[in-house]
């Protein structure tokens, strides 16, 4: 897998991660090297294997459909970087 600057930009955009020009160069070489190692997985034949997503599979967990207390709104807002009344304040979304 050859990682080029365009792929780094694409992945960073998906991850909502800002990059400096130095970061971009660093990721080209680091991701290339790490993925070269990861590609040893391709030497293994796992055709029949069922993917294991989670250690304990096929289990659903329900609770009674009863109203429970939730944390007060003030708790939810306690760490907000910016707020107006009982809302999180963010930069303008629609121009």
């Amino acid at each position: 897998m050859k990682v080029d600057p365009a792929l780094v930009d694409h992945v960073a955009r998906l991850a909502r991660l800002g990059l400096t020009p130095d970061d971009r160069l660093r990721y080209v070489s680091e991701l290339t090297r790490i993925l070269a190692y990861v590609e040893k997985l391709n030497t293994l034949d796992v055709a029949g294997a069922e993917p294991l997503v989670h250690p304990f599979e096929g289990r659903n967990v329900f609770r009674p459909d009863a109203v429970q207390a939730s944390p007060p709104p003030e708790d939810g807002l306690a760490n907000a970087p910016d707020r107006i009344e009982k809302f999180f304040k963010v930069p303008k979304v629609i121009e």
Partner: peptide, 19 residues
């Protein structure tokens, strides 16, 4: 940067604030 933790200052728009 919306509900808790750091939020970068002086960014332009929502996407730039995230990144």
């Amino acid at each position: 940067g919306v509900r808790y933790g750091l939020r970068a200052a002086d960014t332009r728009g929502l996407l730039s604030m995230y990144e």
